[in-house]
């Protein structure tokens, strides 16, 4: 079927590609144009202002702070989720009674809407009537003001993110564990290797490619963090303002689209660098899979 398919194949791939270009390449180019203007959300005539917006980014400390907040959030969230998720996967490994039910229930939080669950967590963490603080009171423990203490707000957002996304790490880690050939463990047992040696020499190295994939996926996702920040503190809280929240604040509360576009291009540059690492990695995995099949 390689003779008459000249037009047909473009009929298959064309519509999707046109769609993606219209919603991705066009906005990107338009963003570049806007970033050199003083355009406002309300419309009106935009004037060319040269590199002024980019100058503002480097003078404005908000951008640097948001970058650090996002970085801190991503590193902490991904690290804790990885450790917890991997630990859970190790615990869930092998057959036991009720395994599939337990595993499926554990996976539910990651399928829920972060914006909606974030709002609901406000209720749970509320300083006056929140059930978490009431439980802490019953236990006679200190009751932190999760949502209003400037030192704790980011931590609260982190906890919600960890609640939602640990199952994601768990799911991928489980797949990695299940793919380890049992004969490696049999060989290790014959060699009288200690549990720790088996973990370090067999389990961890054989799982690590999938864990790395999970970390990359979570990292790119956590970098976009917006929904939980909006739900817990709103977009203009200095202690929790991630890059996306800052963008929202500048563009939709401050109406400064030109400046916002310059911000978003700098963010995009970051994301593109990361996406490249990611894509190379996926390509190498796929090449490996291809070799295994062949």
């Amino acid at each position: 079927m390689h003779v008459k398919d000249g037009v047909l194949k473009y009929g298959f791939v064309g519509p999707a590609l046109i769609f993606l270009i219209a919603f991705n390449i066009f906005p990107l180019l338009y963003n570049i144009y806007l970033s050199f203007t003083d355009a406002e959300l309300s419309g009106g005539l935009a004037r060319f202002v040269g590199g002024r917006n980019y100058g503002v980014i480097f003078d404005d400390t908000r951008y640097g702070v948001a970058l650090c907040t996002t970085g801190l959030f991503v590193v902490l969230a991904v690290a804790v989720e990885l450790v917890l998720g991997f630990g859970l996967a190790l615990a869930l490994r092998g057959p036991f009674w009720g395994k599939s039910v337990v595993t499926t229930i554990l996976l539910v939080p990651m399928m829920l809407s972060p914006a909606v669950m974030g709002l609901y967590w406000n209720f749970i963490l509320n300083g006056h009537y929140g059930v978490v603080n009431q439980a802490l009171a019953v236990l006679g423990l200190f009751q932190p003001q999760w949502l209003t203490d400037p030192d704790l707000k980011l931590l609260s957002i982190l906890m919600i993110d960890i609640w939602m996304w640990t199952p994601f790490m768990m799911l991928i880690a489980l797949a990695g564990l299940n793919a380890i050939p049992p004969h490696l463990y049999e060989a290790a047992a014959l060699d009288r290797a200690s549990n720790w040696t088996v973990f370090r020499r067999v389990t961890l190295p054989l799982c690590s490619p999938l864990l790395f994939l999970a970390v990359l996926l979570r990292t790119t996702d956590a970098l976009k963090q917006f929904d939980l920040v909006m739900a817990v503190t709103g977009p203009n809280d200095r202690t929790t303002q991630t890059l996306s929240a800052l963008l929202y604040q500048v563009m939709f509360r401050g109406y400064k689209i030109g400046l916002g576009s310059a911000y978003s291009l700098v963010i995009l540059l970051l994301v593109i660098v990361l996406a490249n690492v990611f894509i190379r990695y996926i390509a190498s995995i796929q090449a490996k899979q291809g070799r295994d099949v062949a």
Binding site: N31, K224, F226, S261, S264, I267, V271, A275
Partner: peptide, 22 residues
Amino acid sequence: LFFIFSTRFLPPLAVVVPVLMM
């Protein structure tokens, strides 16, 4: 295929204004 994949990485807030203008 990788172009298609990469579109998922864009933060919504970074592309939404041009979409809104369009």
